[in-house]
Design a protein around this nucleic acid. Sequence first.
DNA 1: AACGGAATGT
DNA 2: ACATTCCGTT
Length: 567
Amino acid sequence: NPDSAGFAFPEWAYKPESSPGSRQIQLWHFILELLRKQEYNDVIAWQGDYGEFVIKDPDEVARLWGARKCKPQMNYDKLSRALRYYYNKRILHKTKGKRFTYKFNFNKLVLVNYPFIDMGSSGRGVPQSAPPVPTGGTHFRFPPSTPSEVLSSSEELRSPGVFSTVARRMARGSVSDCSDGTSTNSELEEAAAADERAIGPDRAFRGLLAPRLPHESLFRFYGGHPTPAGLPRPAPRVHADPLSPFPVSPLPGPGGLLSPALSMMGSHFSFNPEDMKHYLQAHTQSVYNYHLSPRAFLHYPNIVVPQPHRPTPEKPAPHHLQAPPMPLPLSQQQADDAHASPFKFKLQPPPLGRKQREAGSSLAAAASSSNHASSFTGAGPNVGPAVGGAPPKIKVEPVSDLSEEDVEVTDISEEDELNPNSEDEEGDMFPPLPHSRHHHHHLKNGSGISPSAPHPEEDPDDDEEVFKTPATPPPGGGGAFPLMGLKTEPGQAVAPVSPGGTRCIPLKLRFKRRWSEDQRMEADGDREEAEDKKVLGLMLPPAPTQRRASSELQRATAQLSLENAGC
DNA sequence: AACGGAATGT
DNA sequence: ACATTCCGTT
């Protein structure tokens, strides 16, 4: 299964919204979908801050969602539960104080995914929070609908909605459901048209350079800090050609969130050069596949990334509109690592087998003991009283367990760090993890060591701390990525787990923890590669000629969508 | 209204 | 994994 190639793109990227038949649509996709269609403006709309939206008619949204999923019993209560699950995943958070208002967690994701963007060496000055929507209007829409549109102006690069997808268009009609006749063909057409209109002339460049490949249908995020329209900012410092951004996900998807600064092998992060190499290879591959500008190549000191060979002798010419990205034959090594590399991490850790709580006490005990061999997270460097005894049977809060967050570790910049109080609100923040290890957890054991107490800094957002610490500025390196010391030898870098002496776990080690087999499995067993591939196959057929192709594609997909109309 | 645990389903 | 369903708590 050479082309599964393990790495490369996370599956969600390929089904941004639409695999035509996608009954698998995810709620947030759906929300986004509704959000971008004016028809639903009275039902749900962007409002307020960047990424913030209001569900004006909860029942209707629920109805639509239910229709889409063929779950007639859907209601807002249930839907909102699903939304709440997104909090942990960092996809969404609630805008407090505003009814039915949620917010997509963009900034973070952007940064994480676009490490190439040098947010500011200019200083931490860059305000974290997104500036008020400049759109003059009260609401904005995710502007571009096509990659080319997106890519067109630099302004756009900074605009709030940076998401773009061809797929979105394809998905058109995806709102339609199985049973209710509300959505019809005409609606679809109409929507398409409307969309077109909405896009407006501004995207003058459309088509200029964006390759419109089918697979461009991944969500992309360009740029980072949105800037008020009126305040043009110098072009973003992007290491990659802004016009040829590396396709990455705005979401915490497998692989999506990691910055090249870190690679994640299996379920642990690694600073290992080898791993990095793989990561970079993947990236490189992507650059080729997507015909991105060579400038998009990441360069890290000390790491030589073999360039993928293209079947076609063509040079990686930047603006090339065609060529199906294809899974190139991977090198042996790559192949080997294929399974290891798909870095993936879960955002919502598996509920530990806590349940039995009430029932079997003995069971619980057993469970706890087995399970936490590695459970302490906490232990910051000095703190860690290492436990002597048994790992406290604290409820292992998934998210809090660094693992997940680590994802954001990558987030180089921002975060409140500076002002912890900042709290959510504006900008990106992360919603403070809902369940951080704050309350409960009464340590039963007499150890007196409280899991939470000792690590004040350990809050969810300490990730950056974690990140910074190991930083070993590359010597002569580009300095662009201060974060990583690629030189680090695995051995030295990662302090071996000292038997018994657990304290002083190097920060890096924290990344290594995994909570369960499960996770590990998921991490590398890469599973749905099936999906990936499948979609890949579907989505990346020989790219015909760009422009028109997309419309044809649209049509085709629309049709497919319709076919699926029935439950 | 919003939250989040738990069980269940696909 | 990602909801859906149900439900007690805030």
